[in-house]
Design a protein around this nucleic acid. Structure first.
Lengths: 333, 333
DNA sequence: CTGAAAGCGCTTACAG
DNA sequence: CTGAAAGCGCTTACAG
């Protein structure tokens, strides 16, 4: 049986309350007593029971992170951007001494928003694909029912969200392509996606180009099993219809990686014939040939800001905050 | 204030014990009573407090997953194989109705093995890089001190582990390269790594080739910041010393992706001049140009087996189990 | 500085 | 089938 604080107390020759105080570093415990308690705890292999402790304290010091997946999606096929964001949220969580509970959700079978209500977590963060309509409907209902959380991206209202600075990202992409001498430009991205971030990227791109008298083509990728496949098909279609395109901005890196493959398949060179910029800064972009030029959100800042907003910001005054992005110039543009 | 089972009891006009029984679906509760309790709970937005429940039950229905990182490593740079494995462990965990607590650990500052001892989890799984010597020393000590867990990979003794069927993987790689007419073959992989899996892959590869009278070159990648960089450098060195090599088996996909880049940089074509096979089946391999041929462990099986071993197998009789791998033939071989 | 006691919100053996 | 009560292992107000 696991030892309790009573066992430690007996061994140290003090009361159980003193054990608790000593181990929590409460003020007003004799240094010698504290040392004796610590020694006894160590000898017995005692570890405080977190359930008892959390029950008393009414705080679990843990964050719940929900990642929304595409229905039927293999977990290993989740967009790597979300794994990277998960990693930075984990770092921010751990820096506070908090635990991280993760939950991948995709359908009615496993939708859950009660991590805070059950006391399991002190706050909840929701990230993942906005393409899962049922999931976001579920979370909208949950929020209306009083389950509170903070989102990355999200379809916008009624959620409390945080996003990349997509407008600036789109503008940076436009300016870079123009500076590289490109004039026949296209944006490739979903047009009727609930993911507002795609629209923001597109609109920043368009705005910066129009200021230079350029009107980009806007290409909606054909339906496909995933963003990469959509990108391949989009590049084929686009270059068939407009063979003289010399620069493309794709709404996300996975899409851009597909576009890259699609361009190469037409026999064109990148960036020689067509320059290409993505968005997200995923690791796989650095492995492409040539390496993908992209807009890279500051993920450390994103993780930290999401955790801070979830934990410390009950009125969500940070909602709508933007995470800075930088242009990572690599091989494709 | 969050409602408790006493609030529900009052509203439903029953005792608190009846609320608990009704909500846990205990046998011997009148159907009509159960319905009244459920309704009251719903109306109040009541959710069972997991800390109180776990404290009573002495079980938290959660798995703790520790991922060991390289010291100083950016969380977004973690080998995608481990993120994929995390995803499949999450799926297996969720299929049992369990929660998943994740912890990325890299140095003394955040090493922790007490998730089970504190009651936070019912079992612990450890995955991640074997290159972090300090971490594995820590977990070896923890195990000796009675903290129990199950590992993926691991440096071997004294851990309870589960791995890919690396021997078969190495043999499949050998047979495929030979079937493709390749005769001057090399294995690229760390030679003094605590990661026993690399040695197993190499030895299976060598054994299958020797049966055909071929002796492969064994190349240790030069030191580098990550596996990809090591792969690039290894390919350069290897092809400079042995320009006639026509087939390479790399110990992991990240290494293989580096090797791919290194080969191309020498002006050789893949698979025309040099065929290449990796190991792990990471998503980024499918995005390479050409797509990486690789040995793909059955990750769903791995996640399920790890969770089963951690949870149901106190004597670790499954330790040493092998996860099947299949050859995914894509573009590089 | 330390101890005895109450209480966090459940689950379940016991009694009816 | 249902209720009153004990107890899971802590933390901390209260008293000394």
């Amino acid at each position: 049986m696991r030892p309790t604080s009573f066992d430690v107390a007996e061994r140290a020759g003090v009361s159980q309350s003193t054990v608790s105080r000593a181990l929590r570093n409460s003020p007003g415990v004799n240094a010698e007593t504290r040392a004796r308690v610590s020694a006894a705890a160590r000898e017995l292999g005692y570890v405080v029971d977190r359930h008892a402790s959390s029950l008393r304290l009414k705080s679990s010091e843990t964050i719940a992170l929900v990642t929304i997946c595409r229905p039927g999606e293999d977990r290993s096929a989740i967009n790597p951007f979300y794994f990277a964001l998960l990693g930075s949220i984990a770092a921010a969580t751990s820096a506070r001494g908090f635990n991280l509970l993760v939950s991948f959700q995709e359908s009615e079978a496993n939708f859950r928003a009660d991590f805070v209500a059950s006391g399991l977590a002190d706050a909840m963060i929701v990230i993942g694909t906005t393409s899962n309509r049922a999931a976001w409907d579920y979370f909208a209902d949950a929020q209306a029912a009083g389950f509170d959380f903070t989102c990355w991206g999200s379809p916008g209202d009624p959620f409390h969200w945080m996003r990349s600075d997509n407008d600036i990202g789109g503008r940076l992409a436009a300016e870079h392509l123009v500076a590289r001498g490109r004039r026949i430009l296209a944006f490739v991205g979903p047009q009727r996606s609930p993911q507002r971030q795609f629209d923001e990227r597109r609109d920043g791109f368009i705005a910066a180009l129009e200021a230079r008298g350029i009107t980009p083509l806007i290409a909606e990728p054909p339906a496909g099993p995933d963003r990469h496949a959509q990108g391949v098909a989009a590049a084929r279609e686009l270059l068939a219809a407009h063979p003289d395109i010399d620069g493309i901005f794709a709404a996300s890196d996975m899409l851009a990686l597909g576009v890259l493959q699609g361009i190469k398949e037409t026999g064109r060179s990148v960036p020689g014939d067509v320059a290409l910029i993505g968005f997200d800064g995923i690791r796989a972009g650095t492995l492409a040939d040539p390496a993908l030029t992209t807009l890279e959100p500051d993920l450390d800042a994103a993780g930290e800001a999401l955790v801070a907003m979830a934990l410390e910001d009950a009125d969500h005054s940070r909602s709508g905050t933007r995470i800075p992005v930088r242009l990572a110039v690599r091989g494709t543009a």
